[in-house]
Design a protein around this nucleic acid. Structure first.
Lengths: 243, 243
DNA sequence: CGAGGTGTTGACAGTTTTCAAGCAGAGTGG
DNA sequence: CCACTCTGCTTGAAAACTGTCAACACCTCG
């Protein structure tokens, strides 16, 4: 993979929100990035770690999770190509949660030191990255609402629409469907329900003709009804309004 | 109020995480801050707004919330003196949630422009503020876990310990108790339960001798048991380890 | 073929919400 | 001082939602 290919989704993302000039772009392309293939479930960083590099998602998905109480897992975020899921480790040195791989994934590891240099000397990039961590936070807030106020059916509908909307913004959807290698158990961990209940919710959404889960592919069948069931408003994603 | 008094909790907070030199301190003290007294429930910023200033909490508490579905409210964060609850509006120009006052409160409003200048020319301060937004995000993540995985009793216990720990870090606790002007309905909105159930949980915690709610004052009666009930680990708060 | 992961189902138990009502205290105005 | 209102807290009973347990079908892979 060339540097251009590696940094492409990342650059595209940054440019949505911020003026990135040629020198910024050169600086990003000259970062020392080590790419690595990783398989489903592999750990990138674990709670208590003190990482010395950040990981850029190039292909595939990454998730952030935490074990709560007696072994239950809560997933707190899904990350897609162009994201840096553990950028926070630059400033919060101890990991307070786990970061791991979903499906097969290509990651680029960027050591903290050159990244810190980049932030110091390229204010545009610093600002874009800061903004990125703020939209992450906005998504966390929406998840609090999701888990706190909506019933299980709405939660799943909402999560699907979020994934769809974010993936569409980076051109990784195929009409109204997209590839997402998650089992029902994983979805259950993300919306805070049991696997059994998750299964019933999936069936209900299927029977009502709203969406279809099929071996790593999610298809939206009736977007209008799904939006209504989900109580979904994309404002919190802070995407480029032109999309 | 003098500038020194206004900025004191804020400066104290920044210094915990970052080297702030004298010039940084001078720059902060010369910010044009307009203070304002506000009363319980007053709105600071609402969803859809495009604020042109950020608000610094000087005395009292501020909360962030969102209306979900048919009028239910989810509280997503509580902020204490030294916090800037809407710092994100510097980079995410449209508010995706509401910010309002809890109890009586003194706020300092700082226009975006001088704040942006400060960030541009004082990298230490920029870094400290960025770090602050990252700890906010860490708290959001923990709230997702709280609402997603714990039962109502643990959730309340967890929230109380979080408030206690954060307030202790800024010296606003009184032994094992602290002042926090929240009704049970407010707590219900924060942990995602109904008011009725919240009341039952409060009584249970009282009966078990874990804590006491009394007109705006919360007292921890048995810290060890409460910690256990809450499944609480302060790691995610990223506080100065010397505290 | 057997093992393990994933999806599915039924019955039952537990938690939480909803509805409806009553109580206590603070503040208001007559 | 006494209604009166308002808000916050409390209680009981029924209904809704969700979790747990146990079992089985299906599929892939070694």
């Amino acid at each position: 993979m060339t540097k251009a290919e590696i940094t492409a989704p990342f650059l595209k993302r940054l440019k949505v929100s911020t003026e990135i000039d040629e020198e910024d772009e050169r600086a990003i392309k000259s970062l020392p990035i080590v790419t690595k293939q990783m398989a489903n479930g592999e750990a990138i960083a674990s709670i208590g770690d003190r990482p010395s590099a950040c990981c850029l998602v190039i292909e595939g998905f990454v998730l952030r999770s935490k074990i709560v109480g007696v072994g239950q897992r809560q997933i707190m975020a899904f990350h897609q190509p162009g994201d840096i899921p553990d950028l926070q480790s630059l400033f919060l040195h101890v990991m307070d949660h786990d970061v791991s791989v979903l499906g097969n994934c290509v990651l680029g590891f960027i050591p903290h030191t050159p990244l810190q240099e980049l932030i110091k000397h390229r204010p545009n990039i610093a600002q874009a990255l800061w903004r990125d961590t703020l939209t992450d936070a906005a998504i966390f807030r929406e998840w609090i609402c999701n888990v706190g106020q909506r019933d299980a059916t709405s939660r799943v509908a909402h999560l699907v629409l979020e994934l769809y909307t974010r993936l569409k913004a980076i051109g990784r959807t195929d009409g109204l469907s997209f590839s997402f290698p998650a089992t029902q158990a994983l979805f259950a961990d993300a919306v805070g329900t049991s696997v059994v209940h998750m299964n019933r919710v999936v069936q209900e959404l299927r029977n009502q003709g709203l969406l279809e889960f099929d071996r790593g592919r999610i298809s939206i069948l009736d977007e209008t009804k799904l939006r209504k069931a989900a109580d979904f408003d994309a404002l919190y994603l802070h995407l480029d309004p032109s999309l």
